[in-house]
Amino acid sequence: MSLFWIVVRQLAEIEAMAASKKVIPREVWERKLNNVKIRKEDMNKLVMNFLVTEGFVEAAEKFCKESGTEPDIDLATITDRMAVKKAVQSGNVEDAIEKVNDLNPEILDTNPQLFFHLQQQRLIELIRNGKVEEALEFAQEELAPRGEENQSFLEELERTVALLAFEDISNCPVGELLDISQRLKTASEVNAAILTSQSHEKDPKLPSLLKMLIWAQNQLAEKASFPRINDITTAALEDPV
C-alpha cells in the first residue's frame, strides 16, 4: 500500500471517530439518574395539580386525606366546574350557561368569544334536534347581534347556519360542527375560562414535564447514545439500538 493510501485511510478513520456518538452505558446512566433527588411532596403536588385541573374531585379528596397534600383550590369549585363541563358535553348548553353565571357572573360578561361559542353550541344543539324554526329564531335574535359586533363571529355564524341548508348532514361540508368533538372543544374552552377566573392554570403541569422529557431526550440523542424512555406509561429504560 502506498503511503498515500495509508494516509487517506487514517484520515477516514479519524473522521469516523469524530462522527460517532458518545455511548453512555446503562449502568453509568442509572447511576447518574440515581444522583438526581426528587422530593416526595413535590411529586404529590404534581399529582394533586393533575387531579384538580382535570376535575377528579373525589380522587383529589381521597388523595388529600391519604397523602396530606393540600389542593391549591377549593375542591367545591371543582364540582361546580365539572358540572358545567358535563352539561356542555351532553348538549345542555343553557343549563351550562346558568351554572357558569352562578359560579361567577363576570366570566361570560367579560369573555365575548366564549359567550359566542356557547351560544353557537346552543344553536348547533337546536339544529341537531331538528328544531329548525327555533334554531332560525335563536340565530336571528341571539347570535346575529354578536356577529354585528365582530366580523369573525359573523363568519362562524354563517358557517353554523349553513347546517340548516342540508337535508343530509353527512354530506354537509360543515358537518363537523355536529360532531361530538365540537362539544368537547366548547366544554374545554369553558373549563379553561373558569380555571383562569379562579386564578388557576388551565393546564396540568404533568403533561408539560413529559413533553420536556421527550424533547430533552431528542436533543441528547443527537450527541450521545443512551438508554432512553420510549414508552412513558412504563417509563422503562430501553437500550440504544
Binding site: 350557561i97 346558568e98 353565571n101 357572573p105 361570560l108 369573555n111 359567550f115 347581534p145 359586533e149
Partner: peptide, 12 residues
Amino acid sequence: REVKNQIIGNRT
C-alpha cells in the same frame, strides 16, 4: 335569575 341569565354577555 332569568334576567341575569338573559343579560350576561348580551349587550342587546
